[in-house]
Design a protein around this nucleic acid. Sequence first.
RNA 1: CGGAGUGUGGCGCAGUCCGGUUAGCGCACUCGUCUGGGGGACGAGAGGUCGUUGGUUCAAAUCCAAUCACUCCGACCA
Length: 443
Amino acid sequence: MRLSRYFLPLLKETPADATIASHKYMLRAGMIKQNSAGIYSWLPLGFKVLKKIEQIVREEQNKAGAIEMLMPTIQSADLWRETGRYDAYGPEMLRITDRHERDMLYGPTNEDMITDIFRSFVRSYKDLPKNLYHIQWKFRDERRPRFGVMRGREFLMKDAYSFDMTAEDARKSYNKMFLTYLNTYARMGLKAVAMKADTGPIGGDLSHEFIILAETGESEVFCHADLVNMPPPGELDFDADLQPLVDERLALYAATDEMHNADAFAKIPEDKQLSARGIEVGHIFYFGEKYSEPMNAAVMDQDGKAVTVHMGSYGVGVSRLVGGIIEASHDENGIIWPKAVTPFGAGIINLKVGDEEADKVSEDLYAKLSTAGIDPLYDDRSDRGGVKFSRMDLIGLPYSITVGPRGLKEGIVEVKTRATGERENLSPEAAVKFITSEYEGIV
RNA sequence: CGGAGUGUGGCGCAGUCCGGUUAGCGCACUCGUCUGGGGGACGAGAGGUCGUUGGUUCAAAUCCAAUCACUCCGACCA
């Protein structure tokens, strides 16, 4: 993309209502625009990141055997009355009345609807297990939206729902998601820890929250320090018994404040006791027959007997992750995107637009990086160098190549790595080679 | 939902307490000149129903009332 043709409305000054880094930088870098309290438009740059995160989540879900579909944002109140949640959910649910005076709602989650879909079509134990998911906008009328997309009212969530014959099988489905989540966050450059969690209004008795540590996190968390740097499980054999891998994680203490057990925490060696703040980026539940029983979602077993299915649900806050990643990866100059989610793979800064040689080399780099699948952003505007440098730092592309007459006299361009600030003088060819190799396995 | 605030060009703010010329300032924007390797200089411009409605007054951004929106602090949550 050529910057001169892109839509990137940057702000020089920080808007007054932003108090945390991710919110500030998302506004300043032209990623989002607030439309109402807790409701945002995703501008082109922000949208690209959102889509990249969504795609990583999707790929990992698919690997684990979950099947993607799409349910509507607007639901009928009837389903929610069946499970008793229409009254139980409270004012967080946005209730709507249509022209026929029918009670509708903007879905805050989809357990009721997916259970209805399941019971409509699935009749036999032979069809189980199943895990269905979608990535869809949700609305929860938060009492107090804040922190930009980290606590919006409208947010994009991946929610998966598993169906099994027995509690034991459901545990297997749960384990798949548990480990898949760790891989998912790791791919985005995040260190996430699974913590014992409260089940809230979703209900159930087995639940974990996935937390990334950040000073601006909303929840207080306690865990064994080794969990933070534990490598992700990596390639998984989903047909094998995954319990040992899960147990490995659960052996070390980790809990959010509402589930915190001070005695258990005290047993951790003192230098490993980690008490910090965290951002919840995922939450998984096993809730058994909580919805399948009232909604009569049952299948025939081998003996022709109806068996109520065991369910679980698994959420990832996709839009929240955009903010979460920035909280975890930024400095005083702006965002530092992990390679897997960066909106553009590299920036090209032409310091003297109009200079024949600088234009030629920049265009050539742009063409070669594009062909290599790097998706470069070419700053072809005629601003001064300083403006371009700070702009590039703010939007945080992992690499940028500076092209200017001074360097070209020696036949070199400068490649800067955003995270380290390191700069290296290379020939244009070597610069392309370097960046391409850095993206090996990601593009 | 309790408490505290804020609404004035695109953004950040001053002016409001104590009513009175043409509502200012910085940044951004447009045009021109000089510039050009870390947010440049000078000159010339454009842009505002002072959130909304009503009231008081000869006169309202300023006082009063209502209302809407947004923010912050707390209690609750992907």
